[in-house]
Design a protein around this nucleic acid. Structure first.
Lengths: 218, 218
DNA sequence: TTGACACATCGTACTAAGTACGGCTACTGT
DNA sequence: ACAGTAGCCGTACTTAGTACGATGTGTCAA
């Protein structure tokens, strides 16, 4: 029996890693820094996890666990929409996660549960295997790509966004790149521009395309 | 005048870096390894580039330069389609590139040229700034996300693909994840399945959605 | 009570990577 | 002939992950 007053645990390590990555970014998530935040020395962490890779695996599982499953009471397309919007929101909260989600070699249980629910939803909607595969590949690519771009770009509307846009726009010759210059001046720098507004636009393009494809096939 | 028999140069460094990253992956691209491949010692590289970051910047520029610009003689939607297909092909050839393309803080000239051409194409097609922004955000997210997933997955049809799919499928309980199990068995493992086949399917969903949106607005 | 053992923590040190600093050499132009 | 410089590299510092083994503290059987 382990002592009851144990302070550290695998869960606490993962909690700390999540919090640290959210705060300082995944590239600054180091064992030594994590240890410091947890109030222990570096090597202590290796008593609970076998490697840093394993920590990242655990973090990815936590992220999957946060994504809403498609609600069974909705039509398949609405249910899928809900989970896609949720996925993007979760990836926004953990900007480091987008490049990692699909790059784990061994999917964990939350990952599997998630995939199962999405595939089941599509199949319940009557999509063929072929169309199911298309739908999944296409939607996830879009979500990851979009979330990744959001994570990379400075938050639109923020000062640093205006600043970096202006800076980039100032660095090139508007004669040589007239459309780009106009795009920046007339649209991107306008106060209600937001990169994120395009997410649901594109998502609905894809989903309504999938609905049509499902109808055509039946 | 520099000596004519100089062997190394910034271009050669970038050539070597591209080749090495294509061969061993970006995470194994180290200064020491690159130097070895170039037949020099590590510090020599720093005579031609200021930092590893600068090498990556240069590599990204090379990749942008390889992506076809939208051909002006085609209709805007067909022209955009050509450049999207080209972008995906280029990103397939350089699997390390997808996560890096949009993450550079200072876009280089090839990057700018590329963005200018795409924006100009969309505007020539009569799209509003709003729709242009949507189109660009949505298409690029999709392309990067898709290319990234392709880079992550083992090549479908290959032995390692069959192997890893079978391995993953064997690692979970088919009772608990019945749809996932059926998906693997009935579709993914069939000989003519390919993840990549979904690319043009989704691309055409997006583009025809954009065409409709452009019509509705005018 | 007394060992003996196991759990949890950590000190030290090795390896790999980026790169700062300054030295060496050979070719340049005067 | 000689000074200057272009190109190359040896050395070493820093930051990372983590292997190995020591240490301390509590538990339990005899």
């Amino acid at each position: 029996m382990p002592a009851a007053h144990t302070s550290l645990s695998r869960d606490r390590v993962l909690d700390g890693a999540l919090a640290l990555a959210d705060r300082v970014g995944i590239e600054s998530l180091t064992i030594r820094r994590l240890a410091e935040q947890l109030g222990v020395k570096a090597m202590t962490i290796y008593y609970y996890v076998p490697s840093k890779e394993a920590i990242v695996d655990g973090m990815v599982e936590r992220v999957f666990a946060q994504i809403a499953l498609p609600p069974p009471e909705l039509s398949w397309d609405q249910a899928i929409r809900v989970r896609c919007v949720s996925a993007r929101r979760v990836l926004n909260q953990h900007p480091w996660a987008a490049p990692l989600l699909e790059s784990r070699s061994a999917p964990g249980p939350d990952n599997l549960r998630h995939h199962e629910a999405v595939l089941a939803c599509l199949r319940r909607g009557g999509l063929s295997w072929q169309l199911t595969a298309h739908a999944y590949a296409v939607l996830d690519s879009y979500i990851y790509g979009f979330a990744f771009e959001e994570a990379t770009l400075p938050e639109s509307g923020s000062d640093s966004f205006t600043e970096s846009t202006t800076e980039i726009a100032a660095a090139f010759d508007p004669q040589k790149f007239p459309t780009l210059a106009a795009f920046a001046a007339e649209h991107v720098l306008s106060p209600d521009y937001s990169f994120g507004h395009s997410f649901e636009f594109g998502l609905d393009l894809l989903i309504s395309g999938l609905v049509s494809a499902a109808h055509d096939a039946s």
